[in-house]
Amino acid sequence: FFQKTLNAVQSWFTLFGWSKGQNPISIPYSLRSDVCIVQLTVAQEKNFKRRVDKDKGFYEMLVHLNGQSIPGIAASQSLSTDPVERMFQLHWQHSELLSFLKRKGAYLPHIMPEFLLAPEDYELWSEVNTGLRRGSMRSSGKLSGRNIFVLEHRTFETMSKRAWTDVLLQMYKVFVLPRISSRMVPDPSSLESLQNMPGIKSEPLCSNVYSRYERTILIWLNKNYEKNRKIVWKDNERGGIPPTRWIVNFDQDLLDSLVLAAQMAGYCPYLIPTHFIKMYTNPTTHEQFLHNA
């Protein structure tokens, strides 16, 4: 499941994350290299500068999606030639990124800045914070009062991949979903069959789980599912027409793929006789769930 999620995230940001066309990304490798690979500049022999390739760096992507940069972080960030100091600079940069996203509404309490470092920088960070290497006291974990958890290489790679995936997902949540307008989603209460069903409010303070934009999508899912379920599966021989359902989340309520099929049928009705009619409308086995997917 996680690999499928990662592939979907990579595909979306590859296609739509950039201002000047497609740019393939690989999580976490290309993202880590973008903020960590540096090259020596001619003008400053003692400084390194992050490589920027045709406006297709990670922070250029962030500016494209958000419309503004992170205060204090330039597109072409000068970095120290000293490995330890450079690691501290990158750690600070990642801290600022996470703080910036959280202020925008991202939910990332489980992501530490060090999880976004490259493996060699994480190794330096571990050595400095455990006392194996002398480093700048300004970034010492002992001084910050935060417990230090040192991960082995394989575990770190797994954590890094998950961390960067979650960062991109939250960027999508706070930068892309707000473009959805509630005016584009008709009031589901206009459907007679939904008038007796509890509604989903899109007001900002009516949920501590989903944002107003995510709730707008839930309203849209409910409307299209109820509108299309009798059309899509009226001749279904694998369970008949599925019953009305109240869609309130993006995991359990979408598990059998019927809700997603109903959405697609509204825009691609030609798929009904070739694909959707063959779905199980009351799946009970793993094979049936897999068939629907």
Score class of each variant (00 low, 15 high):
F1D: 07
F1H: 10
F2Q: 04
Q3E: 13
K4Q: 12
T5L: 12
Q10D: 08
Q10W: 05
G17R: 09
S19H: 13
Q22S: 11
N23P: 14
I27P: 02
Y29E: 11
S30I: 03
L31C: 05
R32P: 00
S33M: 04
S33E: 13
S33D: 07
D34S: 11
D34A: 09
C36S: 13
C36E: 11
L40I: 09
L40V: 05
V42Y: 15
V42A: 12
Q44A: 00
F48R: 04
F48D: 00
R50A: 02
K54I: 06
K54D: 11
K56G: 03
G57Y: 01
Y59C: 00
Y59E: 01
L65C: 11
L65W: 14
L65G: 02
N66L: 04
Q68K: 11
Q68H: 08
S69K: 00
I70Y: 04
A74P: 00
L79Y: 03
S80D: 11
D82H: 12
F88G: 04
F88W: 14
F88P: 03
Q89C: 02
L97F: 10
L98E: 04
S99N: 14
Y107G: 09
L108G: 11
P109A: 03
P109M: 05
H110W: 14
P113H: 14
E114F: 09
L116I: 09
A118G: 07
A118H: 10
P119Y: 10
E127I: 04
E127A: 08
E127C: 03
V128Q: 01
N129L: 09
L132H: 06
L132E: 07
G135C: 14
S136D: 15
S140G: 15
K142N: 12
L143V: 07
S144P: 05
R146S: 07
L151K: 10
E152D: 15
T155F: 12
F156M: 13
F156T: 13
K161T: 07
A163I: 03
V167G: 12
Y172L: 02
K173R: 15
V176L: 08
L177H: 01
L177M: 11
M184Q: 13
M184F: 13
P186F: 09
P188A: 14
L191G: 00
Q195P: 10
M197K: 13
G199N: 05
S202Y: 06
E203I: 12
P204G: 13
L205A: 12
Y210A: 01
Y213D: 05
E214M: 02
R215L: 09
L218T: 08
L218S: 02
W220A: 07
N222S: 12
E226Q: 05
E226M: 04
E226R: 00
K227S: 06
K227G: 02
I231D: 12
V232T: 09
V232S: 11
W233Q: 05
W233L: 04
D235R: 08
E237S: 13
R238K: 15
G240T: 00
I241Q: 04
R245L: 05
R245F: 02
R245K: 14
I247N: 00
V248T: 14
D251M: 13
Q252N: 08
D253G: 02
D253W: 07
D256P: 08
S257N: 12
L260N: 11
A261D: 07
A265P: 03
Y267A: 08
I272A: 15
P273N: 12
I277R: 10
Y280A: 07
Y280P: 01
T281R: 10
T285V: 04
E287I: 15
E287A: 14
F289P: 00
L290P: 01
L290D: 08
L290T: 08
